[in-house]
Structure formats: structure tokens, C-alpha cells
Amino acid sequence: MRSPLATLSDTDRALLKDRLRKPVLTFLALMGLLAVNVTLGATLPFEHVWALELVVVAAMALVVLLVSMEVLHEPPLVKLFSGLGFFWVAIMVGMTLTDYLGR
């Protein structure tokens, strides 16, 4: 930093607040979702809780991809690339499960 936090000028302070709002909110959202999952994992409140846990993970992944990695602000091609890998994972898992769930 150009100078210690206490002596930042008002404009710099405003700039800092403006720039860091999104990362901090993202951080809080991720921590909240993690807290949900850790609680679920530690207490195991009901049968098949894994399904809910996976939903929470999916939400965390979406937050990281869309906000932390700024996919929301990227051009369409980058959006496509960010989803392509997950789509291919779905192909791999889905086609493999036709075997293992069909045995």
C-alpha cells in the first residue's frame, strides 16, 4: 500500500471499499455455504443427506466460477469454455454409470 491504512486519503479509501466489496462478499458467501456443509457432515441429520451436501457444493462451485473467476463479465466464448469441462465430466460420469448402475 502506498501508505498505512490509517493515512489513506478519502478517495483511496472509497476506491478500496469499492474494489474489495465483491471479493469480501464472495468470501462471506463461501464461508456460509461451507458452514452449512460442515454442519450437515458433522451431525448427519437425516438419511441421504449427501444429496443436499452436493447441492451446496454445486452452489459453492458456481460462486467461485461466476464471481471469483469473473466468468459473468467475460465474453461468451470464455463462458462457454468455463462450462465445457463440466459438461464433459457429465458425459464421462453419465455414460460410465450406464454400466455400473445397469449391472
Binding site: 455414460m95 450406464t98 448402475l101 445397469g102
Partner: peptide, 22 residues
Amino acid sequence: TFFVWGHHMFINGQSDLASLAF
């Protein structure tokens, strides 16, 4: 080409469902 790999495994013990799909 990503949807057909199981045709290498028809007689290797994979499920009938998988073999039919592939």
C-alpha cells in the same frame, strides 16, 4: 466420439444397458 467408447468393451463384463447404449 465421446459417446461410443464402450463398444471396445462389449464382451468385457459391462452391463447390457451400457452395451446397448454404446
